[in-house]
Amino acid sequence: MTRHVLELDATRAEGALPHREGHNGHPSPMSLAVRACVLEAKYELLKALRMPAFAIPAIVFPAMFYVLFGVAFGSRGVAGLTMPTYLLATYGAFGVIGASLFAFGVGVAVERGHGWLTLKRATPMPPASFLLAKLAMCALFSVAIVALLATLGVTLGGVRLAAPTWTLLMCTLVAGAVPFCALGLALGLLVAPSAAAPIANLVYLPMAFASGLWIPLEALPAVVRSIAPWLPAYHLAQLALKTIGGGADAPVWSHVAALLGFALAGLGVALYAYRRQEE
Protein backbone atom coordinates (compact mmCIF):
# COMPACT_ATOMS: atom_id res chain seq x y z
CA MET A 1 0.00 0.00 0.00
CA THR A 2 2.64 2.49 1.12
CA ARG A 3 4.92 1.36 -1.65
CA HIS A 4 2.26 2.13 -4.20
CA VAL A 5 1.71 5.65 -2.93
CA LEU A 6 5.42 6.28 -3.33
CA GLU A 7 5.25 5.00 -6.90
CA LEU A 8 2.40 7.38 -7.61
CA ASP A 9 4.37 10.28 -6.25
CA ALA A 10 7.31 9.30 -8.42
CA THR A 11 5.13 9.37 -11.54
CA ARG A 12 3.88 12.75 -10.55
CA ALA A 13 7.34 14.14 -10.04
CA GLU A 14 7.94 13.51 -13.74
CA GLY A 15 4.95 15.67 -14.50
CA ALA A 16 2.77 12.83 -15.75
CA LEU A 17 -0.64 11.95 -14.44
CA PRO A 18 -0.60 8.62 -12.66
CA HIS A 19 -2.48 5.88 -14.45
CA ARG A 20 -5.21 4.45 -12.36
CA GLU A 21 -6.81 2.14 -14.90
CA GLY A 22 -5.30 -1.08 -13.60
CA HIS A 23 -5.59 -1.07 -9.85
CA ASN A 24 -2.66 -3.44 -9.50
CA GLY A 25 -1.44 -3.64 -5.97
CA HIS A 26 -4.54 -1.97 -4.57
CA PRO A 27 -6.89 -3.81 -2.28
CA SER A 28 -9.86 -5.18 -4.18
CA PRO A 29 -12.79 -2.75 -4.42
CA MET A 30 -14.81 -5.09 -2.21
CA SER A 31 -12.32 -5.24 0.66
CA LEU A 32 -11.78 -1.48 0.33
CA ALA A 33 -15.51 -0.92 0.70
CA VAL A 34 -15.78 -3.26 3.68
CA ARG A 35 -12.81 -1.67 5.42
CA ALA A 36 -14.18 1.81 4.77
CA CYS A 37 -17.59 0.79 6.08
CA VAL A 38 -16.16 -0.67 9.30
CA LEU A 39 -14.14 2.49 9.85
CA GLU A 40 -17.21 4.59 9.12
CA ALA A 41 -19.18 2.61 11.73
CA LYS A 42 -16.40 3.06 14.29
CA TYR A 43 -16.39 6.84 13.84
CA GLU A 44 -20.17 6.93 13.80
CA LEU A 45 -20.13 5.26 17.20
CA LEU A 46 -17.39 7.55 18.56
CA LYS A 47 -19.30 10.55 17.30
CA ALA A 48 -22.47 9.43 19.10
CA LEU A 49 -20.67 8.52 22.33
CA ARG A 50 -19.01 11.94 22.43
CA MET A 51 -22.32 13.69 21.98
CA PRO A 52 -23.88 13.78 25.46
CA ALA A 53 -27.08 15.35 24.12
CA PHE A 54 -27.69 12.13 22.22
CA ALA A 55 -25.98 9.40 24.24
CA ILE A 56 -27.28 10.26 27.71
CA PRO A 57 -31.00 10.56 26.95
CA ALA A 58 -30.82 7.53 24.66
CA ILE A 59 -29.39 5.26 27.38
CA VAL A 60 -30.53 6.84 30.63
CA PHE A 61 -34.16 7.82 29.95
CA PRO A 62 -35.53 4.32 29.24
CA ALA A 63 -33.71 2.97 32.31
CA MET A 64 -34.96 5.83 34.49
CA PHE A 65 -38.57 5.42 33.34
CA TYR A 66 -38.34 1.67 33.79
CA VAL A 67 -37.19 2.05 37.38
CA LEU A 68 -39.84 4.70 38.18
CA PHE A 69 -42.83 3.03 36.53
CA GLY A 70 -41.86 -0.58 36.10
CA VAL A 71 -39.84 -1.73 39.05
CA ALA A 72 -41.67 0.45 41.56
CA PHE A 73 -44.97 -1.39 40.98
CA GLY A 74 -43.24 -4.72 41.22
CA SER A 75 -45.86 -6.79 42.98
CA ARG A 76 -48.71 -6.31 40.52
CA GLY A 77 -49.26 -8.66 37.63
CA VAL A 78 -50.47 -7.94 34.11
CA ALA A 79 -51.49 -10.39 31.41
CA GLY A 80 -49.92 -13.29 33.25
CA LEU A 81 -46.56 -11.56 33.71
CA THR A 82 -45.17 -9.58 36.62
CA MET A 83 -45.18 -5.86 35.93
CA PRO A 84 -41.35 -5.56 35.79
CA THR A 85 -41.20 -8.46 33.29
CA TYR A 86 -43.95 -7.05 31.09
CA LEU A 87 -42.50 -3.54 31.14
CA LEU A 88 -38.99 -4.79 30.46
CA ALA A 89 -40.22 -5.70 26.97
CA THR A 90 -42.09 -2.45 26.39
CA TYR A 91 -39.42 -0.13 27.81
CA GLY A 92 -36.89 -2.08 25.78
CA ALA A 93 -38.96 -1.19 22.72
CA PHE A 94 -39.19 2.41 23.96
CA GLY A 95 -35.39 2.58 24.27
CA VAL A 96 -34.41 1.12 20.91
CA ILE A 97 -37.06 3.17 19.10
CA GLY A 98 -35.78 6.39 20.67
CA ALA A 99 -32.15 5.71 19.79
CA SER A 100 -33.08 4.90 16.19
CA LEU A 101 -35.46 7.79 15.62
CA PHE A 102 -33.04 10.34 17.05
CA ALA A 103 -29.80 8.98 15.58
CA PHE A 104 -31.30 8.91 12.11
CA GLY A 105 -33.93 11.65 12.33
CA VAL A 106 -32.02 14.34 14.17
CA GLY A 107 -28.50 13.14 13.31
CA VAL A 108 -29.11 13.07 9.56
CA ALA A 109 -31.08 16.34 9.58
CA VAL A 110 -28.33 18.24 11.40
CA GLU A 111 -25.53 16.84 9.22
CA ARG A 112 -27.59 17.63 6.14
CA GLY A 113 -28.13 21.18 7.37
CA HIS A 114 -24.40 21.76 7.76
CA GLY A 115 -23.71 20.58 4.21
CA TRP A 116 -21.85 17.53 5.51
CA LEU A 117 -24.07 15.08 3.63
CA THR A 118 -23.48 16.97 0.38
CA LEU A 119 -19.73 16.71 0.89
CA LYS A 120 -20.06 13.00 1.70
CA ARG A 121 -22.11 12.51 -1.46
CA ALA A 122 -19.18 13.90 -3.48
CA THR A 123 -16.85 11.18 -2.16
CA PRO A 124 -16.65 7.62 -3.54
CA MET A 125 -18.37 6.40 -0.36
CA PRO A 126 -21.44 4.37 -1.36
CA PRO A 127 -24.61 5.70 0.33
CA ALA A 128 -25.20 2.16 1.63
CA SER A 129 -21.99 2.42 3.63
CA PHE A 130 -23.25 5.56 5.33
CA LEU A 131 -26.52 3.84 6.24
CA LEU A 132 -24.87 0.62 7.40
CA ALA A 133 -22.49 2.56 9.64
CA LYS A 134 -25.35 4.41 11.29
CA LEU A 135 -27.34 1.15 11.57
CA ALA A 136 -24.41 -0.53 13.30
CA MET A 137 -24.13 2.38 15.72
CA CYS A 138 -27.86 2.14 16.48
CA ALA A 139 -27.62 -1.61 16.99
CA LEU A 140 -24.82 -1.18 19.54
CA PHE A 141 -26.77 1.51 21.36
CA SER A 142 -29.80 -0.79 21.34
CA VAL A 143 -27.80 -3.63 22.87
CA ALA A 144 -26.52 -1.28 25.59
CA ILE A 145 -30.01 0.05 26.32
CA VAL A 146 -31.59 -3.40 26.60
CA ALA A 147 -28.67 -4.77 28.62
CA LEU A 148 -29.02 -1.94 31.14
CA LEU A 149 -32.78 -2.51 31.40
CA ALA A 150 -32.25 -6.24 31.84
CA THR A 151 -29.74 -5.64 34.63
CA LEU A 152 -32.18 -3.34 36.41
CA GLY A 153 -35.00 -5.83 35.87
CA VAL A 154 -33.05 -8.73 37.34
CA THR A 155 -31.55 -6.84 40.28
CA LEU A 156 -34.39 -4.51 41.27
CA GLY A 157 -37.49 -6.05 39.68
CA GLY A 158 -36.89 -9.75 40.26
CA VAL A 159 -37.26 -10.57 36.60
CA ARG A 160 -36.35 -14.19 35.87
CA LEU A 161 -36.11 -15.43 32.30
CA ALA A 162 -34.39 -18.47 30.75
CA ALA A 163 -31.20 -17.78 28.80
CA PRO A 164 -32.73 -18.53 25.36
CA THR A 165 -35.59 -16.16 26.20
CA TRP A 166 -33.17 -13.36 27.09
CA THR A 167 -31.38 -13.91 23.78
CA LEU A 168 -34.60 -13.94 21.81
CA LEU A 169 -35.83 -10.77 23.53
CA MET A 170 -32.55 -8.98 22.86
CA CYS A 171 -32.48 -10.03 19.20
CA THR A 172 -36.12 -9.07 18.66
CA LEU A 173 -35.60 -5.60 20.08
CA VAL A 174 -32.34 -4.91 18.22
CA ALA A 175 -33.67 -6.15 14.87
CA GLY A 176 -37.02 -4.50 15.52
CA ALA A 177 -35.30 -1.13 15.74
CA VAL A 178 -34.44 -1.19 12.02
CA PRO A 179 -37.87 0.00 10.78
CA PHE A 180 -37.54 2.99 13.11
CA CYS A 181 -34.14 3.76 11.60
CA ALA A 182 -35.90 3.90 8.22
CA LEU A 183 -38.62 6.17 9.59
CA GLY A 184 -35.97 8.35 11.24
CA LEU A 185 -34.04 8.55 7.98
CA ALA A 186 -37.16 9.73 6.15
CA LEU A 187 -37.65 12.40 8.81
CA GLY A 188 -33.99 13.43 8.71
CA LEU A 189 -33.95 13.88 4.95
CA LEU A 190 -37.31 15.60 4.78
CA VAL A 191 -37.68 18.18 7.56
CA ALA A 192 -35.75 21.38 8.28
CA PRO A 193 -32.68 20.67 10.48
CA SER A 194 -33.89 22.91 13.31
CA ALA A 195 -37.33 21.27 13.29
CA ALA A 196 -36.02 17.70 13.38
CA ALA A 197 -35.68 17.31 17.17
CA PRO A 198 -39.11 18.79 18.05
CA ILE A 199 -40.79 16.73 15.33
CA ALA A 200 -38.99 13.56 16.40
CA ASN A 201 -40.24 14.14 19.97
CA LEU A 202 -43.76 14.84 18.74
CA VAL A 203 -43.77 11.51 16.93
CA TYR A 204 -41.87 9.52 19.54
CA LEU A 205 -43.53 10.38 22.83
CA PRO A 206 -47.24 10.22 21.88
CA MET A 207 -46.56 7.07 19.84
CA ALA A 208 -44.81 5.47 22.81
CA PHE A 209 -47.76 6.22 25.07
CA ALA A 210 -50.45 5.12 22.61
CA SER A 211 -48.58 1.91 21.80
CA GLY A 212 -48.55 0.90 25.46
CA LEU A 213 -44.81 1.25 25.96
CA TRP A 214 -45.11 3.20 29.23
CA ILE A 215 -48.29 1.78 30.71
CA PRO A 216 -49.62 -1.64 29.63
CA LEU A 217 -52.36 -1.32 26.99
CA GLU A 218 -54.59 -3.42 29.21
CA ALA A 219 -54.68 -0.49 31.64
CA LEU A 220 -55.40 2.15 28.99
CA PRO A 221 -58.80 3.38 27.73
CA ALA A 222 -60.46 1.50 24.86
CA VAL A 223 -59.89 4.39 22.45
CA VAL A 224 -56.13 4.16 22.88
CA ARG A 225 -56.29 0.39 22.43
CA SER A 226 -58.08 0.88 19.13
CA ILE A 227 -55.44 3.34 17.89
CA ALA A 228 -52.44 1.24 18.92
CA PRO A 229 -52.45 -1.31 16.03
CA TRP A 230 -51.95 1.57 13.57
CA LEU A 231 -48.64 2.51 15.19
CA PRO A 232 -45.32 0.79 14.41
CA ALA A 233 -44.19 0.91 18.05
CA TYR A 234 -47.19 -1.23 19.06
CA HIS A 235 -46.07 -4.03 16.75
CA LEU A 236 -42.52 -4.05 18.06
CA ALA A 237 -43.80 -4.10 21.65
CA GLN A 238 -46.11 -7.02 20.85
CA LEU A 239 -43.26 -8.97 19.26
CA ALA A 240 -41.09 -8.34 22.32
CA LEU A 241 -43.92 -9.40 24.66
CA LYS A 242 -44.43 -12.59 22.67
CA THR A 243 -40.84 -13.64 23.29
CA ILE A 244 -41.54 -13.60 27.04
CA GLY A 245 -44.95 -15.27 26.83
CA GLY A 246 -47.21 -12.23 26.68
CA GLY A 247 -48.74 -10.11 23.95
CA ALA A 248 -52.10 -9.96 22.19
CA ASP A 249 -53.69 -12.78 20.20
CA ALA A 250 -52.55 -11.64 16.73
CA PRO A 251 -49.95 -13.96 15.15
CA VAL A 252 -46.28 -13.09 15.06
CA TRP A 253 -46.22 -12.74 11.25
CA SER A 254 -48.85 -9.98 11.36
CA HIS A 255 -46.59 -7.84 13.55
CA VAL A 256 -43.56 -8.60 11.41
CA ALA A 257 -45.53 -7.69 8.29
CA ALA A 258 -46.70 -4.42 9.83
CA LEU A 259 -43.12 -3.47 10.79
CA LEU A 260 -41.86 -4.37 7.31
CA GLY A 261 -44.57 -2.18 5.85
CA PHE A 262 -43.51 0.79 7.97
CA ALA A 263 -39.85 0.14 7.12
CA LEU A 264 -40.56 0.13 3.38
CA ALA A 265 -42.70 3.25 3.65
CA GLY A 266 -39.87 5.02 5.52
CA LEU A 267 -37.29 3.91 2.97
CA GLY A 268 -39.54 5.00 0.11
CA VAL A 269 -39.96 8.49 1.53
CA ALA A 270 -36.22 8.66 2.33
CA LEU A 271 -35.32 7.66 -1.23
CA TYR A 272 -37.67 10.27 -2.64
CA ALA A 273 -36.17 12.98 -0.40
CA TYR A 274 -32.62 11.91 -1.28
CA ARG A 275 -33.32 12.00 -5.02
CA ARG A 276 -34.91 15.41 -4.66
CA GLN A 277 -31.62 16.78 -3.30
CA GLU A 278 -29.85 15.77 -6.50
CA GLU A 279 -32.10 17.90 -8.68
Binding site: M1, H4, V5, L8, R20, H23, H26, P27, P29, L32, R35, A36, L39, E40, Y43, L46, K47, R50, M51, E111, H114, G115, W116, T118, L119, A122, T123, P124, M125
Partner: peptide
Protein backbone atom coordinates in the same frame (compact mmCIF):
# COMPACT_ATOMS: atom_id res chain seq x y z
CA UNK B 1 -13.88 18.18 -3.36
CA UNK B 2 -13.97 21.19 -1.06
CA UNK B 3 -17.38 22.81 -0.76
CA UNK B 4 -18.69 25.82 1.11
CA UNK B 5 -20.15 24.00 4.09
CA UNK B 6 -20.60 25.32 7.58
CA UNK B 7 -19.59 22.35 9.70
CA UNK B 8 -18.38 18.81 9.75
CA UNK B 9 -19.28 16.61 12.74
CA UNK B 10 -17.73 18.41 15.69
CA UNK B 11 -17.01 15.54 18.04
CA UNK B 12 -14.45 13.85 15.78
CA UNK B 13 -10.81 14.92 15.71
CA UNK B 14 -8.98 16.20 12.64
CA UNK B 15 -7.08 12.91 12.36
CA UNK B 16 -10.26 10.86 12.63
CA UNK B 17 -11.98 12.86 9.92
CA UNK B 18 -9.03 12.42 7.57
CA UNK B 19 -8.80 8.69 8.36
CA UNK B 20 -12.46 8.24 7.59
CA UNK B 21 -12.36 10.17 4.30
CA UNK B 22 -9.19 8.62 2.92
CA UNK B 23 -10.54 5.11 3.55
CA UNK B 24 -12.82 5.51 0.53
CA UNK B 25 -9.95 6.03 -1.93
CA UNK B 26 -7.78 3.31 -3.49
CA UNK B 27 -4.38 5.02 -3.08
CA UNK B 28 -4.79 7.86 -0.57
Amino acid sequence: VMLQISKVPETLTVREHIASFRSHYPAP
